[in-house]
Design a protein around this nucleic acid. Structure first.
Lengths: 258, 258
DNA sequence: CAGTGGTCTAGACCACACG
DNA sequence: GTGTGGTCTAGACCACTGA
């Protein structure tokens, strides 16, 4: 037990990362449905406490990679198809892609300061004509377009000159790294939409082809809207899911009548 | 520390429930934005370990009632203007429609017992050919089709004869009312899809028209899959959203074998 | 019944935020 | 530096599952 106040500390890395890696390796070695070693066994093998192991397992379970059954055991879940993301955690597409080892690059991009349209002002809780920074880009994998992303940010939050060399295209990542303003959550509408001429051209599809559209408002801890974004996804590359929990109570509009 | 193997045990209730109640009371006493006592303080006040307190706090934070900021403190979240509302709460479309005052009726319906297809068996964690109950129906508002819904349930959970007069078409509502099996959550994939011939006919669209598709596995508390459902929505009638929270994300590879 | 995951404790140390 | 939440440990007991 580590009780002494000296600081020998870790040669390899943090227990958490180590456990995450080991778990990922385990999952790759086992087939879906197979049972994993018991928690005490695994904890000892990995040289961490059971609490630490369970914390890591929790995140795997949330991502749908693991199934734990009380009194029975822990099992490998179904293999996730394609690129998959649980929507409840806010994460940039770039971060997601990197995390799963996907090569992406930024295609045709446009960054400009202009005046907010009426619709944008509405979602950003500002006035039409107020200055905003607009960032539009195409995301590519293997030189093939997979998504078209637009961010609109009031210039009170972000100016053109704030985008340094390190800017990778993700406004969300930039805000998270900068830490200012502190972010709370995003409210994301989910829509299926047909590609119009502009989208068809940018994504190399035909007009009328089906797209998944995420329309999001990024909200700071103080409640103000920081970013209004539209994301269009070509089917077959990304796959999103959400975990819907049986309600304890507080029901309200999950959907609005249009 | 409780080390002795005697069983004095608790007079009131489980620490978890006690802490949940105390936290809820605390939140009602404080205004949004106010800072709560530190974790060690709270833990001592409530007479539980810090780990137990943190476990309870985690669920409050997930529900958006609390905000914890590393190195700063714990705060009461902003007034939830119905934040806790999107897809994250599991509720039947019928219940939702009724609550928002939308008149719906069940059109063209088909209920039958048959053998599970390979794809269905996969999602239900059973074997192909195992008997299932399939419930397919069209949802109408104003005599106009707005959604096509299919539920597939292993007959171990539900038989044709279990559907009484009161069955309104919603398998979820039926399970919730029956209380058996106890439900946990659903894992819902979100996809944009073009209507095929069958869907086009049932929803009175043209082939190739865009649809939002929700593909869900309904999971019981014991982890078993109770229901596999496909829901196709005609755009313009329903609008779904989800609240995505900024991640405390963990470290590494979610990578999956193919 | 044996074996599994679920909860809980007391205490220590780590990492971050902010004056 | 001071104070906060975040991680981690070793061990014990609880509650469920299934033979």
């Amino acid at each position: 037990m580590r009780v002494i106040s000296k600081k020998p500390r870790r040669p390899p890395q943090s227990p958490r990362l180590q456990v995450n890696e080991a778990l990922a390796a385990l999952l790759n070695k086992h087939h879906p449905g197979e049972q994993l070693p018991t928690e005490p066994q695994l904890a000892q093998q990995l040289g961490v406490s059971r609490a630490t192991l369970r914390e890591a397992m929790r995140s795997f379970e949330e991502r749908g990679l693991l199934v734990r059954r009380h009194g029975v055991g822990t099992f490998v879940a179904q293999p996730p198809p394609v690129i998959e993301s649980g929507l409840e955690e806010l994460e940039s597409l770039d971060t997601l892609a990197r995390r799963i080892g996907l090569e992406t690059s930024m295609g045709e991009a446009l960054i400009e300061e202009r005046e907010a349209t009426s619709d944008e002002a509405d979602h950003l809780q500002i006035s039409p004509g107020d200055p905003v920074l607009a960032v539009a880009r195409v995301m590519l994998t293997d030189a093939q377009p997979v998504a078209y992303l637009v961010d609109v940010i009031p210039t009170t939050w972000l100016r053109l000159q704030d985008l340094g060399e390190a800017f990778n295209g993700s406004v969300l990542d930039m805000f998270l790294q900068r830490g200012e303003p502190a972010l709370s959550h995003s409210r994301t509408d989910i829509v299926a939409e047909a590609a119009d001429g502009m989208l068809a051209r940018k994504l190399r599809l035909r007009r009328g082809d089906v797209l998944l559209k995420l329309e999001a408002q990024l909200v700071a801890l103080d409640g103000r809207v920081v970013d209004y974004s539209l994301s269009y996804f070509v089917p077959g590359h990304f796959r999103f899911h959400v975990v819907r929990r049986v309600g304890k109570n507080n029901g309200e509009s999950t959907l609005a009548k249009v």
